[in-house]
Simulated scan of single mutants.
Amino acid sequence: MTETAPRPRSPRMARDARRAQVLTVALDLFAREGFHHVSMDDIAERAQVSKPVLYRHFPSKLDLYLAVVDHRGEALVAAVGAALAAADPDDPQGGRAVVRGIVRAYVEFVEDAGDSFSLLFESDVTHDNDVRLRVDQASAEAARAICGGLRELAGLPPEHAELLSTALVGMARVAATSRYRSRRVAVDETVELVTQLAWRGVAGLVRDRPEPGDDAPEQCSGT
Score class of each variant (00 low, 15 high):
7 R>A: 15
218 E>Q: 12
121 F>S: 09
62 L>K: 10
172 A>C: 07
207 R>Q: 15
130 D>S: 15
139 S>C: 04
46 R>Y: 02
139 S>M: 10
206 V>Y: 03
132 R>V: 01
55 Y>N: 09
193 L>G: 11
124 D>A: 02
65 Y>E: 02
55 Y>G: 03
19 R>Q: 14
210 P>I: 07
74 E>Q: 15
24 T>L: 11
45 E>D: 13
216 A>D: 14
220 C>S: 04
186 A>I: 04
102 I>L: 13
134 R>T: 15
63 D>S: 14
30 F>W: 06
15 R>N: 08
136 D>A: 14
111 E>I: 01
131 V>Q: 02
84 L>G: 05
66 L>V: 13
195 T>P: 11
157 P>V: 11
142 A>K: 01
221 S>M: 09
187 V>L: 15
66 L>G: 00
22 V>C: 00
177 T>G: 07
10 S>L: 10
42 D>I: 02
53 V>S: 15
164 L>M: 15
33 E>D: 14
138 A>N: 04
88 D>F: 08
29 L>P: 01
138 A>T: 04
177 T>S: 10
141 E>H: 14
9 R>K: 14
28 D>P: 00
1 M>N: 11
37 H>A: 13
209 R>Q: 10
4 T>S: 12
66 L>F: 05
39 S>C: 04
18 R>W: 00
108 E>H: 10
